[in-house]
């Protein structure tokens, strides 16, 4: 359809013709400047994500795996998808318990085990690239070790977040992590709470297509 391409671009260029547009300058301060301390950011993140039914647990750095096992037991979850290769996943793997949930890795292409993932995995554990205080959002860049569907298909998603990894705004996260310069990954995500819908008469229901529960473990 190169003919279409040429025609469209030509029409656009002709339309603009001799009246070039001069848009006003973009002043980003309104979405950029927040003078929140680390504690305030943490506070705000927690308020925002819990307001959309996210679950937050602040735990000591050396205790989070125990906390995870306790949570899973309380929720009646019997298995967990976790990467043996990421720092977060490795800890879960090395500290798994005889009586605890069974661990499994996402170690083959989805095409090989789709029904298994869709029907038999209770929960997944991933890390993240930080979070955004203003909106209560987690930043995930799925990787080879922690593929895209980990945060989407299992009914419960556990995420480990460092308390010092919270940015005030999306703008700050983009800028400080240098997304545009790094080059974007095939998939990048902001996740703010469990999957939900209000399509039936404005009534909120959770877990429509993605996880029903999103649990954030904040390491302090």
């Amino acid at each position: 359809m190169t003919a279409a391409r040429t025609a469209i671009l030509q029409r656009l260029r002709a339309g603009r013709g001799n009246q070039p547009l001069s848009p006003p300058a973009s002043d980003f301060s309104v979405v950029r400047d927040r003078d929140w301390t680390t504690a305030e950011k943490l506070e705000r993140f927690e308020t925002m994500i819990t307001s959309v039914n996210g679950e937050v647990h602040r735990v000591a750095e050396d205790r989070w795996v125990d906390h995870l096992w306790a949570l899973m037991a309380a929720k009646g979850l019997t298995n967990l998808l976790a990467s043996p290769e990421t720092s977060v996943g490795r800890e879960a793997w090395t500290r798994q318990r005889e009586s605890g949930p069974r661990l499994r890795a996402y170690d083959s292409p989805i095409d090989d085990w789709k029904p298994e993932l869709f029907n038999n995995v209770d929960a997944a554990l991933t890390g993240c690239r930080g979070a955004i205080a203003e909106t209560g959002s987690l930043i995930l860049w799925p990787t080879v070790q922690e593929p895209r569907l980990m945060s989407l298909v299992p009914p419960v998603h556990f995420v480990v977040l460092g308390a010092d990894q919270i940015y005030a705004t999306f703008y700050q996260a983009l800028a400080e992590q240098g997304w545009a310069d790094l080059g974007m990954p095939a998939n990048a995500l902001l996740i703010s709470g469990p999957s939900k819908t209000a399509d039936i008469e404005q009534t909120l229901a959770y877990g429509v297509h993605g996880p029903r529960e999103l649990v954030v473990l904040i390491l302090e």
């Binding site: 959309v52 989805i110 974007m184 095939a186 998939n187 990048a188 996740i191 703010s192 993605g210």
Partner: peptide
């Protein structure tokens, strides 16, 4: 809403070593 549950940013297909997408 302050933000939707998902903001999904796609910049390419599955890479050779990836398991989904």
């Amino acid at each position: 809403q302050h933000v939707t549950t998902y903001v999904n940013m796609i910049s390419g297909p599955r890479k050779a070593d990836e398991f989904d997408g």
